[in-house]
Write a protein that binds this DNA or RNA. Structure first.
Lengths: 354, 354
DNA sequence: ACACTCTTCGTTAACGTACACGAAACGTGG
DNA sequence: CCACGTTTCGTGTACGTTAACGAAGAGTGT
């Protein structure tokens, strides 16, 4: 049926035979090294194209003793939030997959509350000899410093989870925050009727993270600007993440104005769920972010209505793979890889893959 | 920080050295072949465990000239429905990924309207020498025949898209139809108010496929049984898939009783969308299945409200990978791999990965 | 013509594993 | 004690590629 092409049967030997040269010469043009006459090189190139030669990756990486090292710089999972566990898992999984190909990945964890720990780790990375870096540029200023150094060292880097526009990263892999806020608004549009009130809740004590939340809120508000509806948007900022602080603030906010729907702009939605459950306000619809255990529990109980999630584990996986494909296969990488925005409810959370 | 284990540096040579034997002997116990004294075997086994030896896959498959062949038996993409294009793409992608490992996959396509084409292809597969089969068992009787033969030939097989319970397949990879209908009901529960009417629409001329739709409808109805709500469920079966027939039937159904929401149990939802657009009934909410171009278009236009999708491409990919992991790595495979049930709306369809 | 440097290319030993072949070592029966 | 079979093991080649080494030829200056 399909053409009778000999699959993978052609190797350097066959090319060498046809070109009347030795495999050494063929190897030189394949890895475009010097020392081949232009005429010979062209002849071999021609034959390679003719044969649609595909190098045998196994043999290639077996023979090449050079090992590729990738550094990863992301926040440690804190009691604060378990979010980074998922990307880390994706990173580990990818690392395991490409370990056989002679790629090792070292993970450096910094403290989200401590800019200096970030800087310290960047120094460690620059000291060692890596061929690529995957990083979460949470602290903008410090990150700019770091990637400036990367550039002088011709060290390719990939951003994960948050982007710094205008910098020549190989790729950005992460959420489209604006769009995810927009989507949340879309969902709320479905489940509300005119006259109702929506409360937007930002819970975060980190300044740089707060920036994330604002981007989502922006998308959220944009939706209702573009789709006018007679609902009222309230908002409360909570700068402490412990339950008591959240409770107090929420109490006040709900006292000021009743809410039919609460939109929490990050994964702390389970804290709000706890509050609603405790106070028996289970008629309030609740939407938040991220497929974390506490959130899933509340989702199952019907306290949280929707979770929005952007596959953090896959983010980590893709981040490593982008570097791998670039470094090993010389592939060109998409500059922006926005993750799909998943909607999770009580009824489809069972088989969700983070 | 982590233990100073030499990664992948240990090979058969090191094991042989420690055991005071040659690599040949080590090789014998690794591939548990005969001809090793029990005492020696145990000694080597011990060392292997000690060193946490991981064989080098590349070298392994390089040296072993045996090639693994996988057969795939799925419906051809017809004008009828483009659905199977997605799984096929996933299969092709997976095939490309493992081609380097000496695995070839041959795809056999049958006609969804012709049972005999299915049988013919199964014969072709059995005639050739495959080590594994991935199939969509759409025709139950014929499939049972086929897998009976597979069993006598010790040919492992994986089901995709639809399952035949009780058969010893390596794995089933596909949707949980019941649950996806249940989810649709859940969504409709959000967007309806008491007193409204929902119309269930089954569009399919194939008998075996119809069975799929019923399973979804079952889940759908179960939801409202478990969550009683004052809404009325109507239903119409449409046994011809051309637009004119659908139009006629829909007209009649909507004439009988007004509908606030229409739930189409498969990917033909775009046909209904077309009807709604043409007749200006755009106030009717519409929910259906699958991330196909026509559906996406209608989704973007706001005619379709929700699409439910179960990653058909990933299904194909996972199907091949299950076989690969089993045949090459001897991994144990999960018996049932239900795909996540994704909810797609106008606002999150951009970055959706099928 | 000689010594020398460059360019161009062939040869060969790895890489880690699989597998065929054959060599010891150890019986066992006569 | 020899012939023969069996068990147990070591050796060598192969897989397709990389990369170091060095040989042959061309060019240059004296």
């Amino acid at each position: 049926m399909q053409k009778k092409n000999e699959p993978t049967l052609v190797g350097v030997k066959e090319i060498a035979r046809r070109a009347n040269v030795s495999i050494g010469t063929v190897d030189r043009v394949l890895n475009n090294r010097t020392g081949v006459a232009d005429e010979t090189r062209n002849r071999i190139l021609e034959i390679i194209k003719d044969l649609d030669y595909q190098p045998n990756m196994m043999a290639r990486r077996l023979a090449s003793k050079k090992v590729i090292r990738i550094a990863v710089l992301i926040p440690a999972v804190s009691g604060e939030t378990g979010y980074w566990e998922a990307p880390l898992n994706g990173i580990k999984q990818a690392a395991a997959e490409i370990r056989d190909y002679g790629v090792t990945v070292d993970v450096f964890l910094f403290d989200q509350n401590d800019r200096s720990s970030f800087t310290a780790k960047t120094k460690d990375i620059l000291k060692a000899t890596y061929q690529g870096v995957l990083l979460a540029p949470m602290f903008e200023e410090e990150s700019l410093d770091f990637i400036a150094r990367c550039k002088t060292q011709h060290l390719p880097f990939v951003f994960i989870n948050s982007d710094i526009a205008g910098e020549e990263s190989l790729s950005y892999i992460g959420p489209n925050l604006y769009q995810s806020g927009y989507l949340a608004a879309h969902l709320i549009n479905y489940i509300t009727v005119p006259g109702q009130r929506v409360l937007i809740v930002n819970i975060s004590k980190e300044l740089d993270l707060h920036h994330h939340l604002l981007r989502k809120e922006e998308g959220f508000r944009a939706y209702f600007q573009e789709h006018p509806k007679a609902i009222t948007l309230d908002k409360t900022d909570i700068r402490k993440t412990d339950y008591k602080s959240v409770k107090t603030k929420l109490h006040k906010a709900l006292d000021d104005a009743h809410a039919d729907v609460i939109f929490v702009t990050n994964s702390r939605v389970s804290t709000v769920a706890h509050y609603l459950e405790e106070t028996g306000k289970t008629d309030i619809r609740l939407i938040g972010y991220d497929f974390l255990q506490d959130n899933i529990t509340a989702l199952r109980q019907g306290i949280i209505d929707f979770l929005i999630c952007q596959k953090p584990q896959e983010q980590g996986h893709k981040g490593i793979m982008a570097l791998y494909n670039y470094l090993v296969h010389g592939a060109t990488i998409e500059r922006q890889q926005y993750m799909p925005i998943d909607i999770i409810t009580k009824e489809n959370c069972f088989n969700y893959k983070n």
